[in-house]
Computed example of a mutant assay.
Amino acid sequence: MGHEARVFGELKLLADPTRARILGLIMESPVGRRSVGELALQLGLRQPTVSHHLKALVDEGLLTRTPEGRLAWYSMHPDHVDRVAEVLDPPSATVLADAVLERISTDLASRFAGVFGLETVQRYVRESHALLTEGLRGARHLPSRTSRFAAERLSALARSESTSLRNVPEVLFVCVQNAGRSQIAAAILRHLAGDAVRVRTAGSAPAGAVRSVVVTALDEIGVSIGAEFPKPLTDEVVRAADVVVTMGCGDACPIYPGTRYLDWNIEDPVGLPIGRVRGIRDDIESRVRELLVALAVSSA
């Protein structure tokens, strides 16, 4: 079976809610495996029905079957764990427990000690969590995304309120979904300027993840997207920026005195083939290099 046909078969299987739930239950298991009886009990289905679904998943290579005496155990095939995990939402994808939010708040309060009190940090953590879960945009890796988003907002807030923290120029790139143009620009600017420029991104209507074609186009020129993910546009990141570059957001950004605003008319890469995306990437790189000159920052 060819690669494309196999991927299609896997996605078709995962589109079935019962089979997706079976895989999720197996991945959630502390020992990484489940029996037919366990799965039938948790799913509320008859064992022959569960066995039918398990056979299909084994035939496709997603699961392995290991007999032990009168029982057979089913576990994820190692080659497919990451792919399935990316497709399936984790159990805590939509809402974080208070204990998790409190841990994030405590850690960030320690990080920002002397700058913000615990109550301020808690408010930003909970608000950041709410913004990321709005419309299930930030379902994947929600705890770490919440922590990073809150930390970025607190850092921006501190910078906007203290002139002593403006020791390097800060640039904010904004596009609609924060999954294409703004991520390309930010990645290239970080790559060229390193620590000489502080870079942030945001979206007026952020998507759930950075487009894979964008990651590929950047990788081709040796630029990493890192751990970046789409984030909502918030007031404090705009106030903290020395330069705000918008790309297709219209009047989504608030205007603050002393901030330089640029609008780059660049085609949206969403849904475009890699050849077109390369052209967008190169256009953005040229503009970023010009911006570095204007900021009097040397580039690689």
Results as ranks from 00 to 15, higher is better:
Leu108Gly: 02
Pro90Glu: 10
Ile188Gln: 00
Leu118Pro: 07
Cys249Glu: 13
Glu102Gln: 15
Arg153Gln: 13
Ala158Arg: 02
Thr66Lys: 13
Ala139His: 11
Leu132Ala: 04
Leu131Lys: 12
Leu63Cys: 08
Asp219Lys: 14
Gly69Leu: 10
Asp89His: 04
Phe173Trp: 07
Leu118Arg: 14
Ala185Val: 05
Val277Asp: 02
Val36Lys: 11
Gln177Tyr: 09
Ser144Gly: 00
Ile104Val: 13
Met76Gln: 05
Val245Ala: 08
Pro91Leu: 07
Ala196Cys: 05
Lys12Arg: 15
His129Pro: 02
Gly203Ala: 13
His141Gly: 04
Arg137Thr: 08
Gly135Glu: 03
Ala97Tyr: 11
Ile225Leu: 11
Val277Ile: 15
Arg278Asp: 07
Arg33Leu: 10
Val100Arg: 15
Val270Asp: 09
Ser204Ala: 05
Cys249Pro: 06
Arg33Ile: 03
Leu262Gly: 01
Tyr261Glu: 05
Leu71Tyr: 08
Cys253Gln: 12
Leu295Arg: 04
Asp16Arg: 09
Leu192Ser: 11
Val238Glu: 05
Leu43Cys: 08
Arg33His: 08
Ala99Pro: 01
His141Ala: 05
Val199His: 00
Phe116Pro: 00
Leu131His: 05
Glu228Ile: 02
Val270Met: 14
Leu136Glu: 10
Val100Asn: 12
Gly114Glu: 00
Ser164Met: 10
Ala205His: 12
Arg46Gln: 12
Ser160Gly: 01
Ala252Glu: 03
Thr106Asn: 14
Gly69Trp: 06
Phe116Trp: 11
Asp59Thr: 00
Pro78Cys: 01
Asp195Ala: 11
Ala109Leu: 00
Leu14Arg: 11
Val171Ala: 09
Leu57Ile: 07
Pro143Gln: 08
Arg70Thr: 14
Ser212Ala: 13
Arg198Ile: 07
Val277Met: 05
Arg126Asn: 04
Val87Asp: 07
Ala179Thr: 03
Arg70Glu: 15
Ala85Phe: 06
Arg159His: 12
Arg145Ser: 03
Tyr124Ser: 02
Arg70Leu: 11
Ala158Asp: 01
Lys12His: 14
Ala241Met: 07
Ser29Arg: 08
Ala209Lys: 11
Phe229Thr: 05
Ala5Ile: 12
Glu127Ile: 02
Ser128Ile: 02
Arg83Met: 13
Thr201Ser: 13
Ile188Asn: 02
Gly203Cys: 14
Met27Ser: 08
Ser29Met: 05
